[in-house]
Design a protein around this nucleic acid. Structure first.
Lengths: 334, 334
DNA sequence: TTGAAAGCGCTAACAC
DNA sequence: GTGTTAGCGCTTTCAA
């Protein structure tokens, strides 16, 4: 049907293999031959068949993303879209394609990964893994298929991954607040068993220490979910004890819930900080100061690591730490 | 390297073509042969090479999504993610894969589409086209490559597309408000030149007519952007004239801006309705009644149409209208 | 530097 | 029903 390498070869008066060499920009092709071939390609409006190349090369240049379905809230978090865009933009630049799939649960996820790997559809896989995703990771490690994680893994030394420095991010938030004059700072975190929560909590404590502010367990709460409701309840518990000058949280939704309580009770002047800088933060009244985790960059670096790995099989396991940015809004300018 | 059809053939004591027929579930293969082959596949842990199949079949079973980069706000709208999920879920069920790419502008978009088509990478394309995207659409029409649009096209009769019934959706909103006792209802729409705005406006007018409520131009405003700021300004203009009993908008952000004015001025009891049911609506105080456009279904049907087209080349051009749902929250329970 | 030819893994006539 | 064989469009030895 379409134009093939043979048509080009005929028109340019060379052999198909020469055309192939021109396509892959082989160095041992004379300039004039190259130009002849390019001309023929232009003339016939030729573009190589990607699939045929993939088969011959045993490589598709396709990266597969595995997205968790999870609870809708999490899933509609702009984080995913931003990361997907970061991945896509970098990949496009390097001539890679992106495929994605949603998985309902870990079992399905594993199935899909297996399919991707065994059918040779994708050259590498990017996992959006917040939960401890042993099965998939260990499968991929086992079969030795290239992959990269977004989010710090349990064993950080034998996989490729990207993440924020969550310790530092929260440290900076607290430091920022203290320097603004707030001393009595409460903490509302997500589930305590998550790395991300623990790291941020540690950052909180360290910053207090640095500023010689004594910690107070009673203003520290860990919510069971990243929900507004959970933030609401945590804040209520804190208020039952005292009214802090400021509240740091590990998620915008938690911050929203906490703010809600304060509004209900008519308590003014308590500074509030969220995390993830979702657009909920921006469109709140008062708008919410929040930490931008730079999902776009996380995606970009994930793609970068993976593609480097694909091009250098023996690349050492490594990772990227993406900087966060504190976006100040009205909730800390009271 | 890997296991191929030949290995299976050998082990099962049949010819490669028989194995191939088993793979594609050909009806003219005896049950016992099938089982022999399946057994061999299991034993060797075999999975067909998707790329080789694609080459031989001249079909990849890959659908390509073209996503607009556009303004960040729009892009982070959960709409895209929901639609992408709808597409993915349906496609997976039918054994299709999804590839996506972001395009910076129409030019890049066209380039990408051309590449997809000419390199034979994708079997079909899904366009997220809100703007009038002539170049891409006419290219695809020209080359006769299967594609489907999310959003009503200029010429609705020679392409496949899916969309909401925007007229009806807004009609229902107004009808709902009137039945609750609101009569004096203002309208804040997006840019007037968009179909979606016009259709919704028509629905608004029709509903007023139906209930024998006279229209009042002075409570009708069209914003230049879908932004909070634009909603804010439109509402101010309306208030300069009078305080309506209710306000319908064509976007949650517009509704947020409008609500903001009311709060500032301490005006209570004005009902407010948004559109798109983003999670901004849910997490607002008071939470915002909004029309859910069911992006998931839009995606699902887009995939469905496209896949049907791929399987029946001569399928007539048609479209799906996806129902909207009015999600009532506090802003209409005042 | 270029060409001839085998092969990547699977499918689809065509034969039997 | 099943096997034989010639591709699908490109890459890559191996020779020249």
């Amino acid at each position: 049907m379409g134009i093939t390498i043979k048509d080009i070869a005929k028109l340019a008066n060379v052999s198909p293999s020469t055309v192939s060499r021109v396509i892959s920009n082989s160095p041992k092709i004379s300039q004039e031959t190259k130009e002849k071939v390019y001309k023929a390609m232009k003339e016939l409006n030729y573009e190589p068949n990607v699939i045929a190349r993939s088969l011959a090369n045993n490589s598709t240049r396709i990266l597969g993303l595995i997205l968790p379905t999870s609870e809708d809230d999490l899933f509609e978090n702009p984080f995913f879209m931003q990361a997907m865009k970061g991945i896509s933009v970098y990949a496009q630049k390097k001539g890679y394609y992106i495929m994605y799939a949603f998985s309902e649960n870990e079992e399905k996820e594993l199935e899909f990964i297996k399919h991707y790997v065994r059918s040779k559809l994708v050259d590498g896989i990017i996992l959006f893994t917040s939960r401890q995703n042993d099965k998939c990771i260990s499968y991929l490690k086992n079969v030795g298929h290239p992959f990269v994680l977004i989010g710090r893994p349990e064993q950080p030394n034998d996989v490729l991954w990207v993440d924020n420095d969550n310790f530092r991010a929260m440290y900076n938030v607290v430091d920022f607040l203290v320097k603004k004059g707030y001393k009595d700072i409460a903490f509302i975190g997500g589930p305590e068993n998550l790395y991300v929560t623990r790291d941020r909590f540690d950052g909180y404590r360290k910053a207090l220490q640095t500023h010689a502010i004594s910690e107070d367990d009673k203003v520290v709460k860990f919510a069971k979910h990243f929900s507004k409701q959970a933030g609401y309840e945590a804040m209520k518990e804190i208020l039952a004890y005292k009214i802090p000058q400021a509240v740091v949280t590990t998620d915008d939704l938690l911050a929203l819930g906490a703010t809600h309580v304060l509004n209900e009770l008519g308590i003014k002047g308590v500074a509030m900080v969220g995390f993830n800088n979702t657009y909920l933060a921006e469109y709140q009244v008062p708008s919410l100061t929040s930490v931008d985790i730079n999902a776009h960059k996380l995606g970009e670096y994930a793609a970068k690591l993976l593609i480097e790995k694909l091009q250098k099989k023996d690349m050492p396991y490594t990772h990227y730490i993406v900087d966060t940015v504190l976006v100040e809004r009205e909730s800390t300018r009271l």
